[in-house]
Design a binder for these strands. Structure first.
Lengths: 248, 248
DNA sequence: CGCGATTTGTGCACGCCTTCACAAGCGCCT
DNA sequence: AGGCGCTTGTGAAGGCGTGCACAAATCGCG
């Protein structure tokens, strides 16, 4: 709000590198805003109101405005937000303007699917290497990329300057893989294996556990069932129709 | 704490159905506790201290104690928690004592992997039906289960009393699938497709978006990079070594 | 039988996040 | 040029979640 010049390359104003330390909750929502904005851009919209964008992203409009206000003042009162400008801004903040190299460890059932997942490439992530410990899988080609043996991880990761590693191995080997990734200089890990990884404090780990998601849904099923069976049961409404999603 | 009789079948004491309305944050952590407990049980442990279990689950011990206190008083001071009893309790709360039928819509890259995911069955979830809109895929057998056409969803879902639906279709068809699931009486949905689903308020939706996870990691990479390039850059520690994971 | 070591359960304070409500600013129409 | 409607950006309040620190309770041992 104090810096009015938001033209040219964003992010660096005079001496201040101006990397706003956004709340984690905001960061987790930015990708969803970005997706909604891309969708709007495809339909030819030039500007969006906070109300409109909030609806497209499934959040409260006040929350959206506060989130966006954290990255600067990129809206015009009485008009809304410039779609193209906002896309550039969010992509810059998320670091999506530079393509990031990703490696995937564990080419099993799930790993195989991840290797072919189109959503990665469409956001500037390049899957540059696949690894597995099983000699029978080494050499197999998936989506035009050969599976290498995990012992080559250290060398390849450095060569390709991989910054993000994805773990899709069985739980027993996940920690060893994480250690290898860290040793190879990887500083961000996306873990699909159940269990807790222990890593140095400068490494970020995000975890996705499909079984946990189902168990949370199971809880709500259980609760709904026991509510409808209840005497004082008013409308068996779960609550708000919120979209629960991943975050911290 | 006031009801000391915690023997026999848990949950229903005298008139009070006692379904404690746990905080969402607690619910999201229970599956992780459960996994750690199962692991402990396999190693032959009879009891665990909150400190020990907290370490195994990657959380603060005070947080763990508060979480568990919400479901009743199942620990013994000076000793710890009875592993087997706690497993039963958590499984009851999560509704894992009754096997739940799950159907999966969209047998593409990801859906194929999900259909074969072992983590589902190991927690009492039965994948009872697979659906796809592509006639070429209908009839294909995955993991001993035949793929049916999506038009059969309504009939089959009712027959098998499916309570949980998993959407692994392209984003364009996700909303239509969600509508079909809701119409078939499904009250919980796990959505892997990007975008926001709109559903009635009594239906719970959880979303898993792999691309979003990577974008969040990308942000932290971007931040770390711009911090190390900074003059006042002390240790480029990201923050705490927390394991960020999915929740609400 | 009493005491000390150990561990649970929780009161309290703090910080983050969400939501409301409104002033400030912008464009358009007359 | 002036006023009016619309939309952003934000102050303030409330709620939720976390973590500390400690009292209460239990076991084992002398």
């Amino acid at each position: 709000m104090s810096q009015q010049r938001h033209g040219s390359t964003p992010g660096e104003a005079d001496g201040v590198p101006a990397f706003p330390d956004l709340p984690e909750a905001t960061i987790a929502r930015l990708p969803e805003y970005l997706r909604a904005l891309h969708h709007l851009a495809e339909t030819g919209a030039e500007t969006v109101s906070s109300e409109g964008l909030a609806a497209a992203a499934g959040v409260n409009s006040a929350k959206l405005r506060k989130d966006l206000s954290h990255l600067g003042s990129y809206g015009t009162r009485g008009v809304g937000y410039d779609v193209a400008l906002l896309i550039d801004q969010i992509e810059y903040i998320l670091g999506l303007d530079t393509s990031r190299a990703v490696c995937l460890v564990g080419v099993g059932n799930l790993g195989h699917a991840l290797a072919g997942y189109a959503g990665f490439a469409s956001r500037g992530f390049r899957v540059v290497a696949l690894f597995d410990a099983d000699p029978k899988k080494v050499g197999e080609e998936i989506n035009g990329l050969a599976v290498r043996h995990i012992d080559d991880l250290a060398r390849v990761a450095v060569e390709e300057s991989v910054a993000i590693g994805v773990i899709a191995t069985p739980p027993g080997t996940a920690q060893a893989v994480a250690d290898a990734l860290v040793a190879a200089g990887v500083t961000s890990i996306l873990n699909f294996a159940p269990g807790v990884l222990s890593v140095p404090p400068n490494v970020d780990v995000r975890k996705v556990d499909l079984a946990i998601e189902l168990q949370i849904l199971s809880f709500h099923e259980h609760r709904k069932a026991s509510l409808t069976a209840l005497p004082g049961g008013r409308a068996p409404a779960t609550g708000n129709g919120d979209q629960e999603a991943v975050s911290s």
